[in-house]
Every structure is written in C-alpha cells, then in structure tokens.
C-alpha cells in the first residue's frame, strides 16, 4: 500500500483519498471545520492547512501521493489555526454562554483544542437578524462560519437546495430559498440532513436544545481531537481496536 509521511510517520492511503481522509483513518487528527467525512471537501475554512513538501495547502483538498512529506503539528501551523479561529470569533457574533449549541459546537471545541483565549482582533459586531419563522427550526445567522455544509447537505442529500451563500467578502452570508427570505416559506423539514449537519449554532431544532445538559455534551465528554477520529471512517485495523 502507498504511504505518505505526516509529521514523520508513515500514513497508508488508498487511491483517491485526500491527506485528511487518510490521516484521520489512520488515527491522526488534523484540525478542521468545513470538512465533513460525508461530503465532498470544500477547502474554505483553511483550518486544516498543512505544509506538503514545504508548500502550504489545505489537507482536505490535497490528494494523497506516495512519498509526500506533510507537516501538520508544527508551531507555525497551530499558530495559523489559532489566528483563523480568532478571526472567525471576531467576524461572527459568537456568545457561547447563551448558545444552546455550546458543548456540541465545532468552532468552540477547536478553540479549546488550540488554546484560544480571546478573539484578539476587533470584533465586527455585524447585524445578523435571527429567523424564528419556522415552527420547528431556528436560524441564528450570528454564528455562521460559512462552511457551506448545510448548502451541500440540502442539495446533495435532501435534494432541496434550501440554503445558499450570497454576497462577497465580509458581506458573505447564508440565505434561504424563499422570496420572503424566511425559512418558514421554504420546503425545509426538521429531519433534513441540512438541519443536522450545522457544526455551529446556526440551524437549531426548536424545543430540544437543552435535552442534553451542559457538561454532558459531545465535546464535554471527549475533546474534538479524539471525537473527530471517532467520527471518521477508519482503516480496518483501527476499527476493531
């Protein structure tokens, strides 16, 4: 089997696998946010930036190649990732104490993993009104990190196209497929993959937010570094450990 090197260790891979897929399958975590094992890689959050033969690139879109030398756990790259997380916290209005996604949130878990203590930068405080129109689903745009997972899920899995991204630059934003601009006027359903897949607290099912108490949630129980390996499709020899 072909292998590439990740931080000095040989990682086996199958043809067609990306560096992040092979790394996770072999039990090596590379921080990531917009990458999701069930979807075609997007490459927009840049958290998974690695150096491949010295060249910085996103691990989620980088096809694994034999003999490639990949660096990931370096001070330079973790510094970069910390800054990226800080930038996301400064861009959106992320107020964890009032967010029912707290403990299940990938952005928050990444902040913990990377040791982010402050956004550092000046906050944008953009005005992002909440859409509570739908009887079963709440949309809080304040927390959107523009990972496009809901857009991808709605198009590819639900076959609906409920969500899309619009605008450019810092004005880039999530929109829904309705002339009124309200979620209630779309054909979204509470069972849609798009609703489930949101890694942060934008798309929320109503009335179930606190069923699992704070402190007993996904990343409370297991840091994201371990949880991500749990979630990724594993190589057979790792599967039956």
């Amino acid at each position: 089997m072909n292998t590439f090197q990740l931080d000095g260790e040989e990682i086996p891979f199958e043809p067609g696998q990306t560096v992040i897929q092979a790394a996770l399958a072999a039990g090596h975590y590379i921080p990531h946010l917009c990458y999701h094992p069930e979807f075609v890689p997007h490459g927009s959050c840049r958290l998974c930036t690695v150096r491949a033969d010295g060249r910085p690139t996103a691990a989620c879109t980088l096809p694994a190649q034999p003999g490639l030398k990949v660096e990931s756990e370096t001070e330079e790259l973790n510094d970069l990732r910390r800054t990226l997380v800080q930038m996301l916290f400064a861009e959106g209005n992320h107020f964890c104490p009032s967010c029912e996604k707290s403990g299940n949130c990938v952005l928050q878990a990444l902040g913990y993993d990377l040791g982010v203590l402050t956004a550092g930068f000046r906050h944008f405080f953009l005005d992002r009104p909440v859409d509570a129109s739908h009887p079963d689903i709440l949309l809080d745009f304040n927390r959107c990190v523009l990972c496009k997972l809901c857009v991808r899920a709605s198009e590819e899995v639900d076959g609906k196209g409920v969500f899309s991204l619009a605008g450019r630059g810092i004005q880039r934003r999530l929109i829904v497929s309705a002339e009124s601009g309200r979620l209630a006027d779309t054909d979204v359903a509470v069972t849609d993959k798009a609703v489930e897949v949101c890694p942060v607290g934008v798309i929320l099912r109503k009335r179930v937010g606190f069923r699992v108490p704070i402190g007993r949630r996904r990343y409370d129980l297991r840091p994201i570094r371990a949880q991500a390996l749990e979630d990724a499709p594993r190589r057979p020899e790792h599967r039956h450990e």
């Binding site: 490459g43 927009s44 959050c45 840049r46 958290l47 990226l84 930038m87 996301l88 400064a90 861009e91 930068f121 000046r122 944008f124 990190v145 523009l146 991204l165 605008g167 450019r168 630059g169 810092i170 004005q171 880039r172």
Partner: peptide, 16 residues
C-alpha cells in the same frame, strides 16, 4: 471589496 469571501483568511483578513 473584491474578496469573494470563500476562505476565512481572505474574507476576514482583507476586512480587518
């Protein structure tokens, strides 16, 4: 003004 907003570094970085 011209950043497409796709990736975090450019979307947020150019605005900062």
């Amino acid at each position: 003004h011209e950043s497409c907003g796709f990736c975090t570094p450019c979307r947020v970085g150019t605005a900062m």
